[in-house]
Simulated assay, not measured.
Amino acid sequence: MENNTITIHDIAKALAINSSTVSRALNNSDRVSLKTKKKILDKANELGYQRNLLASNLRRNKTNTIGVIVPRISRYFFSSAISGIEKTAFDKGYNVIICQSLEQLEREENLINTLAANRVDGIIISVSMETLNYDHFDGLKKNGTPIVIFDRHCDLPDRNNVLLDDFVGAFEATNHLIEQGCKNIVHFSGPKNLNVYRNRLKGYKAALEKHEIPFRENLVLNSRLMQEDGTKLAEKVLRLPESIDGIFSANDVAAIGAMQYLKKKGIQIPKDIAIVGFSNGPTSAVMDPPLSTIDQSGGEMGELSANLLFEHLNVESVKREPKTIIVKPSLLVRESSKKRG
């Protein structure tokens, strides 16, 4: 007999007892004696019976599974967030289905539909760079499936958010560069449609304003902030008419690409150009020189997102009140920005 075809009826037949008794024993019912339970469990193990948890959960209209969608699992921030989510879910007795959109709207839409078809109890998502509308969330709302959006803000009504204070992080990074003596600071920014990058740009501008340094539009360079983008942006930096002495990058990945290119061109970091990134990925600490950065607290944001989702799983959909949690970032000063020691 194939293991995956074993049913309670097979166990009942092998023991010559009623199927309902087998079912009660496997569900640890008090209506079955300990002696009979042991006999049934021993036979179930002998035959290789595996309980169909999916069918059991669906009967209860609950799967004890949540879905997580992130742009890229390979990004340290998102892998840290996933770790925090999974740890919290495991402690609550939940399984996690992890997906990545690869920054593509169509893929994100397909993943939402797939998770809904698999009857997940809730979804935690950081939306893709291409996500400009949210029609694909409509089905989840109609079904009463709770959603928590983390890291990247989006304009969904009645949404639950766990967001970083990107403005403060960018302000601290830029302010630090200015305090190190930088006056011509380039900002590597991301896609303008994402609030996360708009807020980091606002923080950059606010720090300049505080120190009465004029904002110059040509010193804001936009890209998707991949490592190859950092290389291309560094090329542009060296062609600018201003003598650039600082770079604030909206992520570590582009900052690292820029550092590698600038070093090949004989630029000394931080003596010639000081650099600060954003996210505190593991590579940032082992660069030469180590990269100053803003710590996004990925693990903490993941745990907060999961706990917020579980709060809403325990409340009827009509009584759920949307909630936003703001996480404070912190500046980690390393050698890449220490112009003044």
Rank of each mutant, 00 (worst) to 15 (best):
S74A: 15
A55Q: 09
K62Y: 02
L58C: 02
R72M: 13
K37S: 11
D42P: 08
E46C: 07
R60I: 11
Y49V: 08
K38L: 14
T65P: 05
S74T: 15
K37T: 08
D30T: 15
I40D: 01
D42N: 14
I66M: 07
L58I: 03
N52C: 07
V32L: 03
L47W: 00
I73E: 08
V32C: 05
I66W: 03
R75Q: 12
T36L: 10
Q50M: 13
L58N: 00
I66L: 08
N61D: 11
N61T: 10
L47D: 02
I40R: 04
G67Y: 00
R72I: 00
R31K: 15
S29F: 14
R59G: 05
N57E: 11
K38I: 08
R51G: 00
L47V: 07
K38M: 13
K39E: 14
N28W: 08
S33Y: 06
L54S: 12
T36K: 10
R72V: 00
R60C: 08
L53K: 12
A44T: 02
K39Y: 05
K37W: 06
N57T: 07
K43C: 12
G67D: 03
S23D: 06
L58H: 02
I40F: 09
E46Q: 15
T36G: 04
I40A: 07
I66Y: 01
N61H: 14
K62F: 02
P71W: 05
K43A: 09
R51T: 09
R59H: 07
N52G: 06
S29M: 05
R75Y: 05
I40G: 07
K38C: 09
L58R: 01
V68N: 06
R24E: 02
V68G: 05
G48P: 06
S29P: 04
T65M: 14
L54N: 11
R60V: 10
L26D: 05
K62M: 12
L26R: 05
S23Q: 00
L47I: 03
R51L: 09
G48D: 09
V32M: 01
S23T: 07
V68F: 10
N27S: 14
L53S: 11
I69L: 05
G67M: 02
D42W: 07
R59A: 14
L34G: 15
S56G: 11
L41I: 04
S23V: 04
R75T: 08
Y49P: 11
K38N: 15
L47E: 06
S29V: 08
G67E: 07
S23Y: 02
R31C: 08
K35P: 03
V70F: 00
D42L: 12
T63D: 04
R31V: 11
K62R: 15
V32A: 03
N27F: 01
L41W: 11
V70D: 02
R75H: 13
S56Y: 05
R24K: 13
T63F: 00
L58S: 01
R59L: 11
K43W: 03
L53R: 13
G48L: 09
S29Y: 12
R60S: 12
K37M: 10
R72H: 13
S74I: 13
V32G: 00
T65Y: 00
Y49G: 09
L41K: 11
K62N: 10
I73T: 05
A55T: 06
L34M: 15
N57K: 09
K39M: 14
L53V: 13
T36C: 06
R31E: 14
